[in-house]
Design a protein around this nucleic acid. Sequence first.
DNA 1: AGATGTGAAGCGGTTCACAGCT
DNA 2: AGCTGTGAACCGCTTCACATCT
Lengths: 209, 209
Amino acid sequence: MIPEATVARLPIYLRTLMEAAAAHETTISSERLAELGGVNAAKVRKDLSYLGSLGTRGVGYDVEFLLFEISRELGLTRDWPVIIVGLGNLGHALANYKGFGARGFQVVGLVDVDPTRVGEEIAGITVRHLDDLPVMASELRPAIGVIATPAPVAQDVADRLVAAGVTSILNFAPGVLSVPKGVAVRKVDLSIELQILSFHQQRQAAQHA
Amino acid sequence: MIPEATVARLPIYLRTLMEAAAAHETTISSERLAELGGVNAAKVRKDLSYLGSLGTRGVGYDVEFLLFEISRELGLTRDWPVIIVGLGNLGHALANYKGFGARGFQVVGLVDVDPTRVGEEIAGITVRHLDDLPVMASELRPAIGVIATPAPVAQDVADRLVAAGVTSILNFAPGVLSVPKGVAVRKVDLSIELQILSFHQQRQAAQHA
DNA sequence: AGATGTGAAGCGGTTCACAGCT
DNA sequence: AGCTGTGAACCGCTTCACATCT
C-alpha cells in the first residue's frame, strides 16, 4: 500500500514533470526531480518505487511515462464531478476558479441555503437549494463535495453530502467533521495556517530581541 | 522546543476551548478536549505539557487559563499586520473575508500589478502597485504576506516580500517557494488537495467494483 | 478516586548507503 | 559510469501505561 505521505507528494511530482515536459525534457533524474520539487532525491526514488519500477538505472525516468503513471495512480485519467456547498465569499471564488476544472475536476453543482442566492447563476451554473441535494445527487453523481459554508452548518452539510453518496470532502469550514469510515476528508483552514505563522513570527521576533 | 506537529494542533485546541468557554464550561479534561478536537487524549496531554504544567491532577484544565496560555504561545496576544498580494478571484475573497481579522490578523495592505486593479478599493483598502511594496513596508510594517497570484510570479513576489521584511508567508500559488532561512512559508494548494481526494476516490471506487 | 504528566514502547516516514541494473 | 531501487539505520511523533499529584 502507498503511504499517505507519498500520496500527498505525488501531485508535486506531477506538476514538476509537467514543467519538465513543457521544457521539452524527455528524461529526468530523481536528483533533478527532487530539486525542482523541493524535496530529497532518496525520497523521490522511494516514493516512485511504490508505484512500481518506473525508471531506468543509469538513465532516469521517462517524463511522459512517469506523468502518465502518476496521473493514473492519482485517478486523474477520469473526471470527478464536484459540488460546491456555500456560496459566500470563498464559495463564489471557488466556483469562478478556472484552474479548478483544469485537471479533471468538473464543477457540476452549486448549492446554498440563502434564498437570495438560490437561482443566481455563477460561472454558468445555477445555484440550487441545499434541500435539492438528493435530487442533484442522482442527476449529477458528484464524487467530491466542497464545503465553503460557515462553521456551524458544516457538519450538517457533510452529513447531507455523505447521504447523497459523496465519498470525498474538501472542507474549508473551521472545525472537525465526523464522517463514516470510507469517506475521505481534507481540511483547508486559513485561520490555522495564520496561527501557525503567528507562532513562527513570534519566535522570530523573540530571536531578534 | 515545541514540536512542529504540536504547534499545528494548538489552534485546534484554541478553537475547542473557545467553544467550551462559550458553553460556560470552566474546566475541561484532556479526554473531553480530545473528543471535541478530534484527537487522542494522550496527545492532548503531551501537547499541552510542552507549554508547561498547566492542568490540575484529578480535575483537568482551567478553560480560561488554558485559552490564555495557548494564545500567548501562538503569539495571538498581539496584532500581526497582513499584506495580500494578488487580487484575482481568491485575493478578492481573502480581502473581504471577515474572519481574517478576527484573531489579530489585520489586513493592512493590498497589492497587485494589474493597472486596472490598482486604485480599486476593496474592503476599505486601496489596492497599490507591487512596486510600492518597499514604501508600504516601511509604512505598514507587515509581518505576514499572503500570495494569491498566479504561479509564475509567486517566486518574484515572495522575494519582494522578503526584501520588504516579511518573515512569514502564506502561499496560495501552486509550486515551491524558495526563501531564506528564518522565513516561514505555509502552503495552501487547492489542486493538491483535490488530487489527494481523487486518489482516495479512485481507491474507493476500486473497492466497490 | 480521578485526571495530569511523562518515561518507554511502537510506528510511520525519512534518509543513508550501496547493491543491482543498463 | 551512472542512476535507480531498496534494506537498514535513524528520527520524530504517537500511543500506551502508570507513577504522581490533588
